[in-house]
Amino acid sequence: MSKKSFRQAINEALRQEMRRDPRVIVMGEDVAGGHGGTSGTVDAWGGVLGVTKGLLTEFGEDRVLDTPITEASYIGAAAGAAATGLRPVAELMFVDFVGCCLDQIMNQAAKFRYMFGGKARTPLVIRAMFGAGFNAAAQHSQALYPLFTHIPGLKVVVPSSPYEAKGLLIEAIRDDDPVIFLEHKVMYDDEEEVPDEAYTIPFGEANLTREGDDLTIVAFGRMVKLANEAADRLERQGISCTVIDPRTTSPLDTDTILDCVADTGRLVIVDESSPRCNMAADVSALVAEYAFDALKAPIRRVMPPHTPVPFASVLENLYLPSVEKIEAAVKAAMGHRVPEIA
């Protein structure tokens, strides 16, 4: 057990699973980097933010494959390799690039098993960075987990901390279905205690980061951290919140969400993805249908506006959910008067 960053936790998960199972391979754009350069240096990057650094050195060219910048072919290749005996972990770099290879994920990998009458196994993991907060603008900042969640046949993981990331990634690699594993790029330097051993966290079981009596906050990915900060502030003001980290949006632990709403009677959902048809909408519908009688106040959603992610910090900050916005939403749900957030 030692303190590890989100980046280190993911690297360690990959490394331990590659040691454990020779069928696990890693591929993607610059997962090593440097091939074909003039300096002769390879493993130059280890991923654009250094997450896969050192894997090439340990596991060699056969298992750590740099790809050309051709997402359709290598994501498709990962799907094909998964269906024929390997357990690939393909990195899509920025999840926004899914526009270049959605067919391979949505029409191929996700559907093999069903279309083929249960005869296929596609143990594929696609890792990708997501999220705003880096001034990376509209094509490098989206939170597209609802897009994947919408597609039957995919599992979708949105880890909220280093401990969560390691256990969930190992689970993803050992899972026999295609898994989309989304890493919030602002979290790579976040640190916490992470066991040195390999461990798994099962999909479809939410984590309660805190338990309270007054209100339930459901938050996804990095928003869990913000929700906890807001809950800390609210606790000092006498409002006690349960914070649910669903961990996976598919499968979604609907039981835990409904149980907590039944206990608290109030719900705030914090979702970094665009507001139409996002997880907040999905969870709202769930609660409205199955826990309507438990609700003491309208459900509040904290989400970005229906715009692309803007570039300038002043706009990006306005765009993103924040601790203050969550706090305000909770107070609104508790019946407090709430000032309009600009």
Binding site: P195, E197, A198, Y199, T200, I201, N207, L208, E211
Partner: peptide, 16 residues
């Protein structure tokens, strides 16, 4: 409590 169960699950999820 849930937290006690969480701690036990954390241990049980370690390989081995």
């Amino acid at each position: 409590g849930r937290k006690m169960a969480d701690d036990i699950l954390r241990y049980k999820r370690l390989d081995g």
